[in-house]
Nucleic acid binder design. Structure first.
Lengths: 113, 113
DNA sequence: TTGACGTACAACCATTCGGTTGTAGGATGA
DNA sequence: TCATCCTACAACCGAATGGTTGTACGTCAA
């Protein structure tokens, strides 16, 4: 049970970091964090085809960083509330483990002194 | 000047997120955050070739998340002190922008009430 | 000196990625 | 209704990724 759960978490984490590993997608997240934007509004900001931007939004959506909501004929994209916090927490966990290492080093230094 | 500086930051950020977008590499970072490990010590933990693990370490090193130090015939890998914090700060920045959006929504709700 | 160990790196392979163009379908306004 | 706007998606392409095996080089111990 926990094995498959861990695998799911890993899948999710893979997807999230992969999604953020592209500057266009990071820029999209920044912009839709400020206000909801349609795909075509987003597309007009970048020097690439509409389809390319559409793919980027799809990647972000699959990673759960962004949600889409149909409004009339446009599809309004918004940053997901909890997702960014989740990523930061993952990094925070890493930082805690790293801090443990630093404390060990400090302890060793104190021992020498 | 600032343009090229921004481009460099983007390159770095691309590399960091990309490096963390693989569960084996995340696991390596976690482990070398606790204690320095040689590449072969790392390699013995994963069900893949030595060369594959070596490549993963190289990716982490290029992203600046990890440093290698020669000790005898082994190459001790350690998590880089500032790097993880840098990544967390990047996420923090995103979260600040997202929080700005939430405050706008709160303001609108207050207006209605 | 000679093995054995730890590492580096090249070459190769299948798959994924980031981009393109083209086609098709649902919603809107005249 | 009909032209237009916005979106969706398939097919394709070159480059990068994640893995493999094989070869070569430095370092240590006997």
């Amino acid at each position: 049970m926990t094995v498959s759960a861990d695998a799911l978490i890993d899948d999710r984490t893979d997807a999230v970091f992969q999604a953020l590993a592209d500057r266009t997608r990071r820029d999209i997240v920044r912009r839709v964090a400020v206000e909801g934007l349609s795909v075509s509004e987003l597309a007009s900001s970048y020097d690439m085809s509409f389809a390319a931007v559409q793919k980027h939004v799809a990647v972000l959506e699959r990673a759960g960083l962004v949600t889409k909501e149909r409004v009339g004929r446009s599809q309004v994209t918004r940053a997901d509330v909890g997702a960014i916090r989740t990523v930061r927490d993952l990094l925070g966990e890493l930082e805690v483990q790293w801090r443990g290492r630093v404390e060990r080093i400090d302890a060793l230094l104190a021992e020498d002194a």
